[in-house]
Design a protein around this nucleic acid. Structure first.
Length: 276
DNA sequence: AGCTACTCCTGGTAGC
DNA sequence: TGCTACCAGGAGTAGC
């Protein structure tokens, strides 16, 4: 599933191919992907606009749009589990799962592809309305040990669902939440208000380190879905310590990795290294 | 406030 | 081999 490192990788790779391009046409094959707008409304909003900036916020991919040098909204994409993005020549075949395609002024096309139809590519006149509820960026200066210690204390929630809550912290998904908790030695069911400041400082550091290492390896690919926009798999899946390793031995203590379900999500941990 | 269940989807796979 | 049933899960929502 594309989480922060995967979306960051995608943003970095498509940025040089998109910035400065003008959208000359659009084809929508699945209207629900637009998240509310009709095809004509969407087309009217984006065709003729220029892509001024490509960036990431949490797991959202954002492209600011301009007309005549003036900001006129943004494309805000979310890949959910199986969304993919490609920028290729217009002769490239996007396959049967293409949802939206934007023709650009240099003969390339931006293709938004999704097998399961959960991904969204929305036009927003004010993207802040879609992004405003997100918590801090884990790799920003805002995300400090002091902030995390206080935030954990203020919310009496179990750690795993809290880390997946995008209004708490933006960008972690199932994989990197499990990996970060393992590296910090914290149990996914531990209550956030009982994690001391020492432990929460460690969690802060491990979240940042995990995400940085995953970005360095262009994200994780363990199934057919996530690929970089160049079609390459990421390499971080080789570094997983707990995710998808149920029954295998812990790299620290040798004991078995266990899979439990927390909030309808598969959750992987080492019960010996991660005490409650 | 926080938890659980349900919804949206379909390729892959386990089981027969 | 070929069928069916179930699983994965990000986020929104409803209900307790």
């Amino acid at each position: 599933m594309p989480e922060l490192p995967e979306v960051e990788t995608i943003a970095r790779l498509i940025r040089p191919r998109l910035v400065g391009r003008r959208i000359e046409g659009c084809e929508v094959r699945w209207t629900r992907t637009l998240g509310g707008l009709s095809r004509p409304e969407f087309a009217r909003a984006v065709v003729g606009a220029r892509l001024a900036r490509v960036w990431r916020r949490g797991k959202f991919l954002v492209a600011d749009l301009e007309r005549g040098g003036r900001a006129c909204g943004a494309l805000v994409g979310h890949l959910r589990m199986t969304g993919r993005v490609h920028v290729e020549s217009s002769t490239w075949d996007p396959g049967p799962y293409l949802k939206v395609r934007l023709a650009l002024d240099d003969g390339t096309c931006f293709s938004f592809i999704d097998v399961r139809k959960f991904a969204r590519l929305r036009f927003a006149r004010e993207p802040e309305l879609l992004l405003g509820d997100l918590g801090p960026e884990p790799l920003s200066d805002e995300f400090t040990p002091a902030w995390l210690a206080e935030a954990l204390r203020a919310r009496g929630r179990r750690l795993k669902p809290l880390l997946l809550d995008q209004t708490f912290l933006a960008g972690l998904g199932n994989i990197y939440a499990d990996e970060s908790l393992f590296r910090a030695g914290l149990h996914p069911l531990a209550r956030s208000d009982r994690v001391g400041s020492e432990r929460s400082a460690r969690l802060c550091g491990e979240i940042r380190a995990t995400l940085r290492e995953a970005i360095d390896r262009e994200g994780s690919s363990f199934d057919v879905f996530y690929r970089t926009p160049e079609g390459n798999p990421g390499r971080y899946q080789d570094e997983f310590k707990v995710y998808g390793r149920a029954g295998k031995s812990c790299t620290l203590c040798g004991g078995p990795i266990v899979r439990i379900v927390v909030g309808q999500r598969g959750t992987h941990l080492c019960p010996r290294c991660q005490r409650r």
